[in-house]
Nucleic acid binder design. Structure first.
Lengths: 230, 230
DNA sequence: CGGTAAGTTGACCTCGTTCAACATTCGTGG
DNA sequence: CCACGAATGTTGAACGAGGTCAACTTACCG
């Protein structure tokens, strides 16, 4: 018995009125500014909660909203005809979903862990875009940054071997979580495998390779630390 | 040899290949309208000529212009620290260069064959963008389409084997050249290899595999025809 | 406890790379 | 015109990275 690769789990998002106390700013160097964009998610937006592995948005359905991730991790993936899945992005808190979608979603978004989102209607975004040049600049910078990221991923997929690719991934992940101790991975080996384009077993082997070379430390399967280069 | 990714353990391999580029968005479907954008390249822009393998624009340098390809093919690539190259796009006549670049070029553009470009200054584009909502819509649609294409490429790189990937590439290329007879490839095996993420030898072998299965016809190395699926 | 899912490890095999030889085309100079 | 070398493409043989399958461990949860 195999579990479906992309079976949309029909857990309904729990809508509840909760004021988020303002999330921590991301220390991401690569990401463009988002002040104007962020300010759209003001007072009137409600928080939605999603259980782990629930579907947040489905490829091909109308993209009627723009989301801001308040907490948790969302995997953004496309699925081929034969059920193979490719996760092209793990979206973290402070990031947006739907920046590069106009009419319909061009990917499927699933909650990795417990996810809290704020949303605003697409119409409102379009209205703001029509009148606000700053917002247009920010949106454009975001899409371009995403495009650049995808192209770097293509390069990385082609040019690097499994352990190095994993190390790159872990390093970049660690860069978003300024921490001195161990960093905990919200996603499992399967997700990492589908992100880096390899099998779960290879991910596991790559972890042990990195550990044996003392390039990373592993407290347990999901708590790691990247060691400084020699 | 079978190309189905999760083929059952059938020792007598059923020789078939998925030929499923049809119902998903073709690059033609995927390409947004460009009327307003195209109209910018009106009277006053003059044509520039480039010899084969000459550099048109260099990664990291100021993106001071927007280009329209009048004729020829441009390879758009990123290069890793160790010199490995990944061609993420072959831009053909009628397509634009610099849609997704704001301050500096984020890729290197090289002429595959003899290339003729029209260009307009970036400043002019920005001015037009500030006042023309139609142009904004078109630009946005173009960038989003590019992003979608990259994500499909990521998926394809991970999920398909060499011969199938080549067939997909040839089919999509053929779709941009509505022709009944043989279609001639402007780029060499090396370019195809760097586009599809494999070695030149594998590209060559994939060609002969496709030819032997009568999925394509080859008049010579650079003239091919994709046969209709059985 | 037992059951299930996730992670790790090993054995084997496949695909693609690498290295090498050879074929073919093309441009240049004799 | 042919001779020659330089690219470019094709084919073969051996190697290796990673996939697949299977066994086992561990953690979690009833």
């Amino acid at each position: 018995m195999t579990f479906s690769a992309a079976g949309p789990s029909n857990s309904t998002p729990v809508q509840q009125m909760r004021h988020t106390t303002g999330h921590r700013a991301e220390p991401d160097h690569n990401r463009p500014r988002s002040d104007t964009l962020m300010s759209l998610f003001g007072s009137r937006s409600f928080a939605q909660h999603f259980q782990p592995n629930s579907t947040i948005l489905l490829d091909g359905t109308p993209a009627d909203a723009l989301y801001l991730i308040v907490s948790g991790t969302v995997r953004c993936c496309t699925i081929s005809e034969d059920g193979q899945r490719q996760i092209f992005r793990f979206a973290q808190s402070g990031e947006f979903l739907g920046i590069a979608d106009i009419e319909t979603w061009h990917f499927t978004g699933e909650a990795v862990d417990h996810v809290i989102l704020k949303s605003i209607p697409r119409r409102q975004v379009e209205r703001a875009l029509a009148t606000n040049p700053d917002l247009r600049r920010e949106m454009r910078a975001h899409i371009c940054a995403q495009l650049e990221t995808r192209e770097k991923q293509l390069l990385s997929l082609v040019t690097t071997r499994a352990p190095e690719r994993l190390l790159q991934f872990l390093s970049e992940f660690a860069a978003t979580r300024a921490s001195t101790g161990y960093i905990s991975l919200p996603m499992g080996r399967r997700d990492i495998a589908e992100h880096l384009g390899m099998s779960v077993e290879t991910v596991s082997r790559a972890f042990t390779v990195l550990k044996d070379r003392h390039l990373i430390d592993l407290a347990c399967a999901e708590k790691f630390k990247v060691n400084a280069a020699a």
